[in-house]
């Protein structure tokens, strides 16, 4: 029987992390880039919980993961407010086309 172990969780989280980084680097839509950030945060959460579960560690990692979820929500609220504001002033949320500030 195929047993699911720590390695499998780590592979899933590594894939999620890579997808998040990929989304951040190739997407130019601000909302999609924020989703990339969420993917990265969740991949870290999977890591924390998997390590805690399979290495028999104390519950502190679970607390950490809960805090990360709360912070991700707070960050999404702030970021979406900023994106809304950008849309009102610039009529676009493409990060490339918002360039009043430049070198």
């Amino acid at each position: 029987m195929f047993e699911i172990g720590l390695t499998h969780y780590l592979i899933v989280s590594a894939i999620l992390f890579s997808l998040g980084v990929l989304a951040l680097s190739i997407r130019r839509n601000a909302v999609l880039m924020l989703m990339g950030v969420e993917l990265i945060l969740n991949s870290a959460n999977i890591n924390l919980l998997a390590f805690s579960r399979y290495k028999g560690l104390a519950l502190e990692a679970h607390v950490f993961a809960l805090f990360v979820i709360i912070l991700a929500a707070a960050e999404a609220a702030v970021a979406l407010a900023i994106v809304l504001h950008i849309y009102r002033t610039n009529n676009t949320i493409e990060a490339d086309r918002i360039s009043a500030l430049k070198e």
């Binding site: 998040g20 980084v21 990339g36 950030v37 870290a44 970021a79 900023i82 994106v83 500030l101």
Partner: peptide, 24 residues
């Protein structure tokens, strides 16, 4: 507004990467 958007995207990415490093 542009400054805030760039800050939130870059800051979110950097702290996410840091969190992944912490989990490792």
């Amino acid at each position: 507004g542009e400054a805030a958007l760039k800050y939130v995207l870059f800051g979110g990415a950097a702290s996410g990467v840091m969190l992944y490093g912490m989990s490792l």
